[in-house]
Simulated scan of single mutants.
Amino acid sequence: MDKRLSLLMFSGDYDKAMAGLILANTARDMGMEVTMFFAFWGLSLIRDPDKMTLEDKTAYEKMLDLFTPKGPEALPMSRMNFSGLGKWMLEEMMEEQDAPRLIHFLKGARKKQVKFYACKLSVDIMGFKQEEFLPETEIVEAKVYLEDALTSDIQLFI
């Protein structure tokens, strides 16, 4: 199958990240090529919590770092978060259904070689560094994503 899926991940919400990663994994299972382009809050999904640093960051960048989720497991729910209670309830319900957690879908996408692109402008504005991201992440300009999306069969914005 020579089909391609292009996902633009703008949201930093747990449930929206789940939706994007479920689609990415399913598309790869169907033999599709998949690209995920992460911008602004979506970058939280591909930051490695073990490699985050405050070194060489401005005061604003340090403050932003304090208030952004520390990796995929720390993402909040988009609705009904209730200070984390809503996310906990969802994870409990998923466990009861033997459904994989977000981190498992992320690991699956990495293993299946989904392309991870980080928006260069978003990375620069937010003060993130290449080494803070998962190793598969390539920092690219929006033009690279748009050229990829133009040749994709399906484009989705999450």
Rank of each mutant, 00 (worst) to 15 (best):
D48C: 05
P72V: 12
L21D: 07
D98E: 14
Y145L: 03
G20Q: 02
L45D: 03
G84E: 07
F38A: 08
A17H: 08
G108A: 06
M77A: 11
S152N: 06
R79S: 12
S44N: 15
F105S: 05
M126A: 13
L106M: 10
Q130A: 14
I46D: 00
L85P: 00
N25P: 00
L8I: 13
W88K: 15
M126I: 09
D13V: 00
M32I: 02
D15K: 07
I46T: 08
K111N: 11
E96W: 01
K57A: 05
V114M: 02
E55K: 13
F38P: 01
D124L: 09
G127V: 03
I46N: 01
E91K: 14
A59N: 11
T35W: 04
Y117K: 03
D65S: 10
D50C: 03
L85K: 14
S78V: 04
E132T: 11
K111C: 00
K115Q: 13
M63E: 12
R4D: 03
Q155N: 15
N25W: 04
A74H: 14
W88H: 13
A59P: 00
A109V: 00
I22V: 15
A39W: 05
L66K: 15
Q113R: 15
M9P: 00
G31R: 12
I46H: 01
M1R: 14
P76D: 08
L90Y: 11
S83H: 11
K62S: 10
D153I: 05
E73F: 00
L106W: 04
M1Y: 08
L66N: 13
A59H: 11
T68C: 00
A24F: 03
M126E: 13
E73C: 02
G42D: 04
C119G: 02
P76F: 09
G127R: 05
F128T: 05
L90M: 13
S78K: 15
A17I: 04
M89Q: 08
E138Y: 03
L106H: 10
E141K: 15
A59I: 09
D2F: 04
V144Y: 08
H104D: 14
F38K: 05
K129A: 07
M63T: 12
K57T: 10
F133Q: 08
K107W: 00
D2M: 11
L156M: 15
P72Y: 13
Y117M: 12
D29N: 14
